[in-house]
Design a protein around this nucleic acid. Structure first.
Lengths: 154, 154
DNA sequence: GCAAAGTAGATGCAATGGCATATATATGCA
DNA sequence: TGCATATATATGCCATTGCATCTACTTTGC
C-alpha cells in the first residue's frame, strides 16, 4: 500500500528537518570558518580515519560512512592530501584500491578544531534544546529517519 | 555562561540531524529528478510566491523565507525566469527592487510536482515514523532549533 | 538640494558538486 | 588461458554556490 499522502504533521516535520539542519549547519560552519578552520566535511573524513586507527580506510568505506558520492570522495581526499592531512597508498589486497590514512598533521587539525566545533554545537543545538531529555528524544527520532528499515508498517 | 561542552546526547542529536537530513533530502530529490522535475529549491521559491498571491515577493523576502544568500536568490530567480516560471518587474515604491511573481506555468509546475513530492515525503519521512505522535514530536523539537530564541536558559 | 552613506540586487571568479565516462585492476566462465 | 564483465577510483564537463565587488537607486544630514 503506497500511502502516498503524508499527514500534516509529517509534512511539517519534513519542512522543519530541512530548515533546521540548513540553519544550524550554516551557523556551525560559519563559526568554524570564522576561526580559520576548513569545512566540516574535512573534519568528518579525518575523524572517520582516526577512528579506523592506523589501518586506513578505503574510499568505499568513507563513502558509506559519510553518505558521499564516489567522485566526491575522490576529490575530497585529493584536497586533504594536498594539505598534508591524509596519505594514500595502494591497497595491497586490491590493486585498484586506495588506502587512505590520517597523518599527524591531520590528527593535529582534529584536536585544534574540536574546541571550536564543540562550542558551536553547544551554542546552536544544545542551547536550543532545553533539557537533556529533549536532546535524547530528538536523537532517537532522527535515528529512525536514518534507519534503513524503521517503522514502515503504520 | 558559555556552556561550551555539549552533552553526548546533544552531540548525537547534531550528528544525526545532519545525517538524517542529508539522507532524506537526497532521496526526495532523487525521486523528483527521476520523475523529470527540477530541484526542490525551485518548488520552494514557487510555493512562497504562490502563497504571496498576486502581489509578488521581493528578493529580500525570498531570501529570508528560504534562508538563501542574496546572490543565490538573484541567480535562482534568473533560472526560474528563463524557464518562464516567474516574472520580474520593478518595484514601484523602490526603484532598486524587483518584484517577483509566479506565472501560470509556475503554478502549473507546482501542481504537477506535488503528487510526486508528496509521495516522496510519505515514503522517506512518514513511513519511517511509526505513529503520528512521533511526527508531531519531531516537528516540535526541530521547531525549537529553528526558533531564534528557544531555551537558552538551561 | 546635494554630497555621503546606505540598501537592493547583479555579476566575475574561484571552489565545489553532479553526471557521465574513462582507466585500471579483478573476477567469472567458456 | 583469455575474453567478457564487474569493481574501484579518477576525471572532464557543466551547474551551482560562496565571496567579493559593482551598479543603481534611496535616504540622511547638512
Amino acid at each position: 500500500m503506497p500511502e502516498s499522502t503524508p499527514s500534516e504533521a509529517v509534512i511539517q516535520a519534513w519542512a522543519r528537518l530541512v530548515k533546521a539542519q540548513h540553519k544550524v549547519l550554516r551557523a556551525v560552519e560559519a563559526d568554524l570558518n570564522k576561526a580559520g578552520f576548513p569545512p566540516l566535511a574535512w573534519y568528518d573524513v579525518l575523524l572517520a580515519l582516526r577512528r579506523a586507527q592506523g589501518k586506513g580506510l578505503r574510499h568505499l568505506e568513507i563513502e558509506a560512512q559519510l553518505l558521499l558520492a564516489q567522485h566526491n570522495v575522490s576529490r575530497l581526499v585529493d584536497r586533504l592530501e594536498k594539505n598534508g592531512l591524509v596519505e594514500r597508498r595502494r591497497a595491497m589486497e586490491d590493486g585498484r584500491g586506495q588506502l587512505v590514512s590520517i597523518t599527524s598533521n591531520g590528527r593535529d587539525l582534529l584536536r585544534r578544531m574540536w574546541p571550536t566545533y564543540r562550542a558551536a554545537i553547544a551554542r546552536h543545538v544544545g542551547r536550543k534544546l532545553g533539557a537533556e531529555t529533549q536532546a535524547k528524544a530528538l536523537a532517537a527520532l532522527l535515528g529512525q529517519l536514518i534507519d534503513e528499515n524503521a517503522a514502515s508498517s503504520s
